[in-house]
């Protein structure tokens, strides 16, 4: 491995040295050199691409091969007791959490983006402020959100370990993503549509709701699906806010673990490694299919 890296580094250094000499070389030699470097860098990009794909492929293969043999009815049992391995309650909690998070973060983020793109002047200090706030929010590690959710929603607002605390925390986490994707979707609606609408005497509100949002919908939808994937995949922020109790929540104020948290719990017991892998299979399939759906929608969006 080290030898391979040295070889690569040496190749690159050689490339820049030889490049300095190019002007002194006779034409046929130069042409062959150029062709050689072309091939060299082409194979280099192939190599790196292959490493990426192999890494992903290996992870997926590993999880599937270790998990699928252990998928059993016991893992989907409806009635559970504390300390059980069934992921059924966790699936219910996950779906519930996704619904609540979307109900909060989508309207909020979408209309923030509409405000930023359609109503504010580009480059005003207020837009810059909101946009950089969103960007900073996007960069904060999820465990920090968890701590914030714990202090604010759980303790200060007294919501305790609950689906609601977790959902509110996750909603804040999702805002930057929703805002960003909606902004991009809005910007991709051609200005000629706006002009056409205004020139017919339509006001801003009608233009936004009848012309711009319908055309931006596929892009917004792709962002929403990405957000769903993020909620399904989140664990750190939820451990502190939604808690880790394995139960089907009977109200929003009940503590419950999502699929990812469930996986973390199972693995920390030590004796349920196989069950953990089986749960991971389900989780992986959910996230992969969400990404695929998002990709398909985004593709259809760019076509029209």
């Amino acid at each position: 491995m080290l030898r391979l890296l040295l070889l690569l580094a040496g190749g690159c250094v050689l490339f820049f040295v030889v490049k300095q000499l190019y002007t002194y070389l006779p034409e046929p030699v130069l042409r062959r050199l150029v062709r050689f470097w072309d091939k060299f860098f082409l194979s280099l990009t192939w190599l790196f691409a292959a490493v990426t794909v192999l890494a992903l492929g290996f992870i997926i293969f590993h999880i599937l091969s270790s998990g699928i043999p252990h998928l059993s009815p016991r893992l989907f049992a409806v009635n559970v007791t504390l300390g059980d391995v069934s992921m059924f309650p966790a699936i219910v909690s996950t779906v519930l959490m996704v619904v609540i998070v979307l109900a909060i973060s989508v309207p909020l983020g979408m209309f923030t983006a509409v405000f930023l793109v359609e109503y504010m002047r580009t480059g005003s200090w207020f837009v810059t402020l909101i946009r950089s706030a969103a960007e900073i929010l996007a960069g904060i590690p999820s465990i920090v959100y968890g701590l914030f959710g714990m202090m604010f929603f759980r303790v200060f607002l007294g919501l305790g370990f609950s689906i609601l605390s977790g959902s509110l925390t996750m909603s804040i986490m999702m805002l930057p993503l929703i805002i960003r994707t909606t902004e991009e979707a809005l910007k991709s609606v051609p200005d000629t549509y706006r002009e056409g609408s205004f020139a017919l005497g339509a006001g801003k509100l009608r233009t936004v709701f009848r012309i711009i949002l319908p055309n931006a919908m596929p892009g917004i939808f792709a962002g929403v699906i990405l957000a769903i994937g993020r909620v399904v995949g989140e664990s750190a922020a939820l451990i502190f806010t939604a808690g880790t109790i394995l139960q089907i929540p009977s109200s929003l104020f009940d503590s419950a673990r999502t699929l990812t948290v469930h996986m973390w719990r199972l693995s920390s017991y030590g004796q349920y490694v196989n069950e953990t892998y089986a749960t991971a299979v389900v989780l992986l399939l959910v996230v992969l299919s969400l990404n695929a759906v998002s990709g398909i929608i985004a593709k259809r969006f760019t076509k029209t």
């Binding site: 051609p190 549509y193 056409g196 609408s197 205004f198 020139a199 017919l200 005497g201 339509a202 055309n215």
Partner: peptide, 19 residues
């Protein structure tokens, strides 16, 4: 302004029908 634009219609350089 919306009433003005109702009274004064406009056709643009590039056709811009809504999708």
């Amino acid at each position: 302004v919306n009433h003005l634009r109702k009274r004064v219609g406009m056709v643009f350089q590039k056709p811009n029908p809504f999708p």
